[in-house]
Design a protein around this nucleic acid. Structure first.
Lengths: 146, 146
DNA sequence: TGTATACTCTACTAAGTTAGTAGGAATAGT
DNA sequence: ACTATTCCTACTAACTTAGTAGAGTATACA
């Protein structure tokens, strides 16, 4: 796994939309501003998230983007797979991979399999509901500590 | 973590050298042939492994490369860090990272920290002695099963 | 001392990825 | 009709990956 700017923007955008879940759509412009991403580049990220089925859009005045399902049903892994592609360290980790002479005997494949498993165990079990809870908790602390 | 060809060649080369540990040096040419890597490109990989302190070289006739320490003292993580660089999914995972406005509050950083930890827990604990044992075990089975 | 053998060093390149930029077309609400 | 917004296509500079090319340097051995 390696996180690019695109993935970083995408995660922040989805978290922002999660915090606005059930409310009015949020414009690309507002999102980009809040997460400090170049507006035009960020549009492309939103397009990919839409194609991936994570968000939907409303055009025209009062339009914008919103989550297409509950934050509890979206994981960090979902976003990463859509934006960054497969998370396997090497392609042979996947089942039915034919380009290797002897997949079953390769001592390194076991290692990459474990790394893949460990990584997805983490990112596929963190939902945006979890993240919202953390963010809200932090805001409380911040308020109290002033 | 993403494994490039360079990393793949490096791991295979070190395993091959581990299997020849205590014996005569192995030439770059022979290694490249056995692991099916382009000879000239592969030379660069060996240079990096040498700079990384994993292997040493003997020039001239009867020369070649050999491990600079016991296979039990070299891990997969050592090779990956030398060839592929840092294994953190994003730079902010490292300690004293200044380029972030609020590292302590970022809910995503926790996740990448965990991914980093899980990945290094795996690759830093597999030694080339372990891998040698696996390879030798497989050869036995292969012999018996004919 | 010569020579074959093997490592060493520097430079170049084609293809792909990353992180954008640019400009306009389509659509929806007032 | 006007304005705000998403949608679509194309372009680009910088960087990385996976090599290639060719000359230079050290060593063992005859």
């Amino acid at each position: 796994m390696k996180l690019t700017y695109k993935g970083d923007y995408a995660l922040k955008a989805v978290l922002d939309l999660a915090l606005h879940y059930g409310q009015e759509p949020v414009t690309s412009h507002d999102l980009a501003k809040r997460i400090d991403a170049p507006a035009k580049f960020f549009e492309q990220v939103l397009t990919e998230l839409k194609k991936g089925g994570i968000i939907e859009s409303r055009r025209g005045n009062e339009g914008g983007y919103l989550l297409s399902k509950s934050p509890s049903k979206i994981t960090v892994g979902d976003i990463i797979r859509i934006i960054e592609g497969p998370i396997e360290p090497i392609a042979c980790v996947k089942e039915n991979y034919a380009n290797c002479t002897d997949v079953n005997r390769c001592v390194f494949r076991n290692i990459w399999q474990k790394v893949y498993q460990a990584t997805s165990d983490i990112i596929d079990h963190v939902t945006f509901e979890d993240l919202m809870a953390q963010v809200k908790g932090q805001q409380q602390i911040a308020t109290y500590s002033i």
